[in-house]
Design a protein around this nucleic acid. Sequence first.
DNA 1: CATGAATGAGGTTTCATTCAT
DNA 2: GATGAATGAAACCTCATTCAT
Lengths: 211, 211, 211, 211
Amino acid sequence: MIEDQRRPRQRRKEARPGEILDAAFEEFALSGFAATKLDDVAARAGITKGTIYLYYASKEELFVATFKEMARPVMENIASLTERLNGPAMDILRAHFRIVYDHMVLDRRGRELQRMLAAEGGRFPDLTERWHDEVIGPAIGQLRAVLRYGVERGEFRPVDMDVFCHILISPVLMASNWYVVFGDRRPLDLAGFYEAHLDTLGRTLLVSRGT
Amino acid sequence: MIEDQRRPRQRRKEARPGEILDAAFEEFALSGFAATKLDDVAARAGITKGTIYLYYASKEELFVATFKEMARPVMENIASLTERLNGPAMDILRAHFRIVYDHMVLDRRGRELQRMLAAEGGRFPDLTERWHDEVIGPAIGQLRAVLRYGVERGEFRPVDMDVFCHILISPVLMASNWYVVFGDRRPLDLAGFYEAHLDTLGRTLLVSRGT
Amino acid sequence: MIEDQRRPRQRRKEARPGEILDAAFEEFALSGFAATKLDDVAARAGITKGTIYLYYASKEELFVATFKEMARPVMENIASLTERLNGPAMDILRAHFRIVYDHMVLDRRGRELQRMLAAEGGRFPDLTERWHDEVIGPAIGQLRAVLRYGVERGEFRPVDMDVFCHILISPVLMASNWYVVFGDRRPLDLAGFYEAHLDTLGRTLLVSRGT
Amino acid sequence: MIEDQRRPRQRRKEARPGEILDAAFEEFALSGFAATKLDDVAARAGITKGTIYLYYASKEELFVATFKEMARPVMENIASLTERLNGPAMDILRAHFRIVYDHMVLDRRGRELQRMLAAEGGRFPDLTERWHDEVIGPAIGQLRAVLRYGVERGEFRPVDMDVFCHILISPVLMASNWYVVFGDRRPLDLAGFYEAHLDTLGRTLLVSRGT
DNA sequence: CATGAATGAGGTTTCATTCAT
DNA sequence: GATGAATGAAACCTCATTCAT
């Protein structure tokens, strides 16, 4: 956003790829892969079309690189989810979902990534796989670990883990998807949503609930 | 499915628009709006490209017509959801979700419609509005009516309707989205999923559960 | 050349591919494969660029089709060279070379084909093979048959066929190549050249020459 | 070929233009003028694209310089062909053609130069002129001088010099062209070819041949 | 001298749209 | 109504050339 005072040719080359990916992400998120014009990406990045090809061999490669770059922080954060399991399982769950909400719902990038995947997954199965292996899979794996911990602890009732993990995480997808589709026109009370989600978790899982 | 006994020529004339929409839906669902070629639509419909323009003025118009046509049965079914509220609220909920699952998860069209909306909604805000007004809105409205009925009946505990409706319906979106994104490669136990979903509903809503 | 009075869209489609190949040949012969612009081909054919793609999938394919089409008459004429071997071998040779000169030297297409092969053969090895198999090979094969016939008849002295065939046919390549490279600026006396060539043949091959 | 012992940096400076021409020649010979990329030339020369422009103002100029440089040794050798005319004319011819074969057939550069001329001559008429004036013309001039010498000497029969010179030299073009077009896939017996060529010369020219 | 990032004109290719039949 | 050949704008991509370092 801050104007670089040096002339274009003088800009430091190290920053180029990143600037391009930022611009590309905006355009791809806005228009989808097929409808995005490299001219627009270049214009947004303040360069010309040809320059993109110095760093990425094709539009497809740019898309993949963009997705991977934008997914990286999400992946890293998911990977570093609660490893320590001690204390009440419900507290761990609460912390767990706090992070998931931050990265998949509140962060615009997380939301757009999910949308892009739904939209373009057919043409980029590798990205779908990667997203599953490094985001969805680990997130559900962590959730399952917490559930098992809670059950072993006598805090949670025993449930079919495979299925319940998907059930319990679905409000996250709902919130992300709602935001992306209906935007600001039909706002969602995200804070209330989060609380209601956790309430549901508790009622669904806890063995004994304080009435 | 039922063979039309009339001569192809004759049959065709009236059925054309519908056949085109069927073909268009498949192609749009497969490739998205921008990447779909009218050539492919025409080929799939067994006609030539020019013929499409006899019925639809542009690719955009075809897309809108396709979406509307495919959304119509879903809308109608949603509209005819349980109007009568009598008997246990939980039974009504169960019936309600049966229909929702049938049309939004099990029916490929319902799944694709949701995906298309996520993918192309930005370029077709009218469709997004329509989908909200005639599918999502009514479905949630019905859900809210049942919840209110259950609360009035003393069967459900009082909750924040607005938020909980979204929470409680999210697994439907999850199932639909999962299917569309991960396809058959990572199958979901849909029957178990449905049961777990209803179980969650019960535990979340019911005032007292028979242990 | 004769203006077709019908408007472009009305031209008969059957003629299109041929018209395109004619135009393409001129441009390819003029500029070579890489430097030829499809715009120019289209302009020469009186159509637009897109139309070319209705008939040929790519510039390469157009080039190959052009070469094959232009080579066809040459190939057919070579194939129909003297099959009957009777009478003086020298007379047969004379007739043989008359045809070869007509198609490889006097005919502009024959000359250009040879040039194109030298120029683009590296990028289109299939064409080179085809040209060898259907033009050069047969022409030399026929020449060899006549030589053998002349030797058996006692008219020609025995020579190493493989090598002499190439030697004896070289003036044809020289004439063709000269014309193509130096054009009209340094004309060649083609009639005298042909006679001198046959004279050389006679002196090289005949057992006894009438002094 | 001889290793330059000086440090690369130092050696480079003076040798640059030559190295560039060497690299350019390989690329131009491989792909032709239009399809050759300066990137590839630079890579082959071990420098960067920009450096080429320190020495040559444009791709065209580089091509011309390359051709001239590569043609220089050929021109020089042609120029120094037999000036002394004494002894049997046939011996002189033999020596003459030995040199011509060495430089136009056996030397890859000679072959490629001829090919390049056929391929790009249209775009570079100056080169064509130069090649004619300094290679083809002198070579034929020398040949004519030997023929005249042989005729005057009573060794050769009188012939139409202009035409016969072309005829008699054509096997050289054939050999060169064959090699360039069919490469190693359809090898030519060059030694036998040379002998057969000289045999043809003798039979065509000599007044009386020892039967 | 040398670099190599950047440019931008221009080429190939695609495809929604038109229109004469 | 239906066809399908033709169009032409626009997209992706290439690469000769420039220029600040």
